[in-house]
């Protein structure tokens, strides 16, 4: 605990020093993300940097190491607020946990733009996010189309507590239940986005259900593990993934994966900063900014409008 307090103290001290260093005429907009290691977040950051250059504002981007570290993210938000930014971008890991801090931001007159997933509160002036429920429902419809409307399918979710984990899983499962009665969902497993674990889960699912026809992964790590597991089991199964990354793109080109849903991560980063700047200037912004999603497969993966939103 001592080390943690020291660390916190050091970060706050550092934060105070850097605040002084930032030129006063440039608007400062920190983005607190859910992570930074995954390529998805790097793409969001790229979009934010693009907007920063365009609107001539100072943007910082940080996030905890794993999507379970709600406490770390709260610390980051606290530090960011203490720097008195012009506006703040926030992708909540746990929207309830952050509400007291967001209220403080509101009292201090700092507009908050939620990104990637919404916050259950009316404090954010705007939310720039993918509709994960609609995107996963599209995956369900594509699955049904490819496997011919009947058979067993399974889902490997990246987690069962975050908004995206819940929305993508439920979006897929509910769409299947509502519109495709011939399809039976035999399992919803949790792979934590870990490639190796997702590969093992896939092989177990195939062993438990030799007649499995389809698999849906709710994020990149899960999808790559799924491809590996199906390959090792030498099974013939329709795989639908989520997001992109080089391994997933390769799997779609080679036909191992039927296709995937891609969000528009660059767009999420860009729209967040754009809305934050507008709000800081007192202009009105749209409450819900749908940054969009696309289905991509081997037929359209190289088309410019798709290639632009995919990342390696």
């Amino acid at each position: 605990m001592i080390t943690r307090r020291l660390l916190l103290g050091a970060t706050t001290a550092l934060a105070m020093m850097t605040t002084g260093a930032i030129a006063q005429d440039k608007m400062y907009v920190p983005l607190i993300s859910k992570g930074f290691q995954h390529q998805f977040w790097q793409a969001v950051k790229a979009g934010a940097d693009k907007a920063a250059a365009e609107f001539n504002v100072e943007v910082t981007f940080e996030g905890p190491e794993t999507e379970a570290q709600v406490d770390k993210q709260i610390e980051m938000l606290t530090t960011a607020l203490s720097k008195k930014p012009a506006a703040i971008g926030f992708a909540a890991l746990d929207s309830q946990a952050a509400i007291p801090l967001l209220r403080k931001a509101k009292e201090a007159g700092i507009p908050v733009v939620a990104f990637d997933s919404g916050v259950d509160s009316d404090i954010p002036v705007a939310t720039a996010a993918t509709s994960n429920v609609a995107a996963a429902a599209l995956a369900a419809n594509k699955m049904s189309e490819i496997i011919g409307g009947s058979g067993k399918v399974a889902v490997i979710a990246h987690d069962q507590t975050s908004r995206t984990g819940i929305d993508r899983t439920e979006g897929f499962v509910n769409e299947i239940k509502a519109k495709h009665p011939g399809i039976q969902i035999v399992a919803v497993e949790v792979g934590g986005g870990d490639h190796l674990k997702s590969a093992e889960i896939t092989k177990t699912l195939l062993a438990a259900n030799p007649d499995l026809k389809g698999l849906f992964a709710t994020n990149e790590g899960g999808a790559i593990g799924m491809v590996q597991g199906v390959q090792e089991a030498k099974a013939k199964v329709t795989i639908i993934g989520y997001d992109s990354g080089k391994a997933q793109k390769d799997a779609i080109r080679s036909g191992l994966m039927a296709g995937a849903i891609t969000q528009n991560p660059v767009g999420i980063g860009y729209e967040t900063v754009k809305a934050a700047v507008a709000a800081a200037k007192g202009q009105s912004v749209a409450k819900d900014i749908d940054t969009g999603f696309f289905w991509y497969d081997s037929s359209n993966i190289d088309k410019p409008e798709i290639a632009a939103v995919l990342y390696d």
């Binding site: 035999v186 399992a187 177990t204 062993a207 438990a208």
Partner: peptide
């Protein structure tokens, strides 16, 4: 244990 529980479709939790 991990494999068996998954094959029996025991909930991940």
């Amino acid at each position: 244990l991990t494999n068996g529980l998954r094959i029996l479709s025991v909930a991940p939790e």
